Amino acid sequence: MKLDVKYLNPFRRFMQKNPAFMRKFLIILVLVCSITESNAQIGNDKWNITGELALPMGMGNKMFRNYLNGIVTAHPKIQYKPFKHWYVAFGPRYMYYKVNEYRIPFEPGVSDDSIADHKKVQSIYGGMHVLGGDIELGWTSWVGPRLGLELGVKTGIAQHWFNTSGTKKYGKQDVLAMYVEPTLSIVLASDEAVAYRWIIGYNFTGYHFDGYRVGSTTSGGYTAKDLRAPTQSLIVGFAISYYFKNQRSDVFLDEP
């Protein structure tokens, strides 16, 4: 049976336009293959400490999606499982979004350069810092000796600081807002006490983004409909967990 090449074109175009997705897929594949070679199994999974490092991508509000580029999400947390398949976790969180200066229209007076010389004039630059914390409730289960799944919902509050060249001129625009974030984690045990995770979440934050948040005084061509959606972000990344009260085996030392 001959495979028609035309059916591969959409997949090929997707991979060409999303090289970062392909790299993440290959990393996950390598992790899965390396872990399946191990016979490790985590016995006591009541307590663990997890460090998440992820990439946030703006969604929902069109202006938020175009004006800010997500750079990093860092989220350490302590997790406790009081029941067989249910857990609770809590911890602080930091996020940073960088202003996409090429997407924001130029505004006179924002740049420190001479406005008369348009070749030197820059658009708004800077970023948004987010610092807060949350509590996570969820369901967890080991579906094999080394493979587990977790479904959770994070609920928290965070302070947003918009620090750009525009806010320095027109005034600070800080926002304190609550957020809710459903999360899926694929857990892959490395040995008796350590596991790696691939995480994906979707963050809903309770404030509306507009150009004035970053110091822009123009609409940028966006309509009220474009700005109607609340601030949202897709969160994709990795994490590492250490499970307490599990003795690790050292395969590099010979037994006496």
Rank of each mutant, 00 (worst) to 15 (best):
K2Q: 14
D4I: 12
N9P: 04
P10Y: 06
P10W: 06
P19W: 06
R23H: 14
K24T: 10
F25C: 08
I28V: 04
I28P: 00
L29N: 09
V30M: 10
C33K: 08
C33G: 12
S34M: 11
E37D: 05
N39T: 13
I42P: 13
I42H: 10
D45T: 10
T50I: 14
G51A: 13
L53V: 13
G58L: 02
M59A: 15
K62Q: 12
M63G: 11
F64Y: 14
I78W: 12
K81A: 12
H85I: 11
H85W: 11
W86L: 15
W86C: 11
W86P: 09
V88S: 03
F90L: 09
F90S: 10
G91K: 05
M95Q: 14
Y96L: 02
V99K: 00
N100C: 00
E101A: 01
F106R: 10
P108A: 08
G109M: 07
S111L: 05
D112S: 07
A116V: 15
D117C: 04
D117S: 09
K119G: 14
V121K: 02
Q122F: 10
S123Y: 00
G126Y: 00
H129A: 00
L131G: 02
G133F: 01
I135T: 04
I135F: 09
G138E: 02
T140Q: 05
P145I: 06
R146Y: 05
R146E: 00
R146I: 03
L147V: 15
G148I: 04
E150C: 04
L151N: 06
V153G: 07
V153N: 06
I157V: 14
I157D: 06
A158N: 09
N163A: 08
T167I: 01
T167N: 01
K169Y: 09
K169M: 12
K169N: 07
G171K: 03
Q173I: 01
D174Y: 15
V175S: 08
L176E: 06
A177N: 03
Y179M: 08
E181I: 08
P182H: 05
T183M: 05
I186D: 06
V187C: 08
A193W: 10
V194G: 01
Y196K: 11
R197W: 10
R197A: 07
H208S: 14
H208L: 08
F209G: 14
F209C: 13
Y212V: 07
R213M: 13
V214H: 02
V214W: 02
G215P: 05
G215M: 00
T217K: 12
T218S: 11
S219H: 15
G220P: 02
T223Q: 07
A224K: 12
A224W: 06
Q232V: 01
Q232M: 08
S233R: 05
G237S: 10
A239L: 01
S241G: 11
S241A: 14
K245L: 13
N246R: 04
S249G: 07
V251C: 04
V251A: 11
